[in-house]
Design a binder for these strands. Structure first.
Length: 426
RNA sequence: GGAGAGGUGGCCGAGUGGCUUAAGGCGCCGGUUUGCUAAACCGGUGUAUUGGGAAACCGAUACCGAGGGUUCGAAUCCCUCCCUCUCCGCCA
């Protein structure tokens, strides 16, 4: 959510920011609504002031045995106006907030302009695709021929976009998550958390999935939602809180399932486990002071790419352009891993700085160290570290051998109980 | 799910309709005293919105779990909901 005061003082910059996102100017309508709201507040407060004074007089007069009827009559005359104003003020306030909740974050000045993902800019590249010397298979074919990846039976119980992993592949997924968590907790300063997978709508308003992207989520019959990413729960750890400055930076990570309806993705990535309704992800969230967030984004991106380097998987880092960047983010780096089966780089992580955008929605503030009064909004960042399912895909495709077996990456061997090669059980 | 007890500022805790602009204490900040520390004493100490001001600041309004209601006036009375604790039942 944007700062209404900032919009008041910088209407032109606000409209320019909307334009970069491909939106129409809104400053005039927002400020008009804001003006009506504030006028209502001002009038209501002056009436409340008069009522409070009159009520005190009534008490004083009555205690002396006098006649308070004239003053009571005066209060009665302003009562109707007050009731109406209360209703109006509330309605106008909700109207303003409702509009603010649908406005995307202001982009960082260095975000490249562009209409869609075609305009994203490659920032750096690491490793080079291995020369296989035979035609690459994709992960779905590899998994099926190993007898350890079953989409058919998953569809029987759950429908499309689900998978059943078996034996060494199930273990491999667990091993990948272990490596990621161990790396982030031991080397990168993150604290491991175990968080809820079901949340109230408020939590999703806080991180920005609601109100605009409800169709991407699974909703339960009692009005809760399955999380689409543990960014939601990890970031909401500071919701409605005032954090002491000395506690910053807060770095938290979690390994959780994620649930997405993939409403707008019909026909996209229908084969394999690239785009499933349920997948596992290790997420990183950093809560920092405003001055630190730009540096933290670079740091977090390196924490994510560090995993790919441990796994010796070639990747590139891409700066998202204005047309491709997420609603709440002011700047995003996508990390794309090389997939021989698709002969291309595919997204495996997305690291975003949301500035104070989510913090405003969540009312997440901090008191700078050494200051006793006053609070400021925190800055929040989130990044996948990494998508575990897609990492498994990348390992299958990059470590495949001509006979369809999979070598276990060196970094994962300690987590695989000595297994060096995953081969067909047929 | 059943029965009971609760939810008041950073923390503890008083407060059953108007001398409460939420007592008192702890903590924290500043000051006095002091060779230093401690103690003692004095003063200060929330959040948000709104109005005024260039600003430091000054005024107003709201906030005692949340939302409604009664009343000239609500932390206090009424209704609904949420959460916590204890016991019982069920359960991984």
């Amino acid at each position: 959510m944007l700062d209404l005061k900032w919009i008041r003082e910088n209407p032109d910059a606000f409209d320019a920011a909307l334009k970069r996102r491909g939106g129409a100017p809104m400053s005039a309508s927002v400020l008009e609504m804001d003006k009506r709201h504030r006028d209502a507040i001002t009038e209501l407060q002056s009436l409340q002031n008069r009522r409070n004074e009159a009520s005190k007089q009534i008490g004083a007069v009555k205690s002396k045995g006098g006649d308070a009827a004239p003053i009571m009559a005066e209060v009665a005359t302003i009562k109707d106006r007050m009731t109406a104003l209360e209703v109006e003020e509330k309605k106008l306030g909700e109207e303003v907030r409702g509009v603010l909740l649908t406005i995307p974050n202001v982009l960082h000045k260095d975000v490249p302009d562009g209409k869609d993902e075609g305009a994203n800019v490659e920032v750096r590249k690491w490793g080079s695709p291995r020369q296989l010397g035979f035609p690459a298979k994709d992960h779905a074919d590899l998994g099926a021929s190993l007898g350890l990846m079953d989409f058919t039976q998953a569809a029987v119980m759950s429908g499309a976009r689900f998978v059943v992993l078996k034996g060494e592949l199930a273990r491999l997924e667990r091993a990948i998550a272990q490596l990621m968590l161990d790396t982030h907790t031991r080397e990168n300063g993150y604290t491991e958390m175990n968080v809820p997978l079901l949340v109230k709508p408020e939590a999703l308003y806080g991180t920005g999935q609601l109100p605009k992207f409800e169709e991407d989520l699974f909703k339960t019959t009692n009005g809760m939602y399955l999380i689409s990413t543990s960014e939601v729960t990890l970031t909401n750890l500071v919701a409605e809180r005032i954090v002491e400055g000395g506690e910053l930076p807060m770095r938290v990570t979690a390994f959780t399932p994620c649930f997405r309806s993939e409403a707008g993705a019909a026909g996209k990535d229908t084969k394999g486990m690239i785009r499933n309704h349920q997948f596992e992800k290790v997420e990183m969230v950093s809560i920092v002071a405003p001055e630190e967030s730009e540096g933290e984004l670079e740091r977090m991106t390196k924490c994510a790419t560090g995993i790919l380097e441990k796994l010796e998987l070639p990747y590139r880092v891409v700066a998202l352009c204005s047309g491709d960047i997420g609603f709440g983010s002011n700047r995003t780096y996508d990390i794309e891993v090389w997939l021989p089966g698709q002969n291309t780089y595919r997204e495996i992580s997305s690291c975003s700085n949301t500035g104070d955008f989510q913090a405003r929605r969540m009312n997440a503030r901090f008191r700078p160290a050494g200051e006793t009064k006053g609070t400021r909004f925190l800055h929040t960042l989130n990044g996948s570290g990494l998508a575990v399912g897609r990492t498994l895909v990348a390992i299958l495709e990059n470590y495949q051998e001509a006979d369809g077996s999979i070598r276990v990456p060196a970094a994962l061997k300690p987590y695989m109980g000595g297994i060096e090669v995953i081969s067909s059980k047929k």
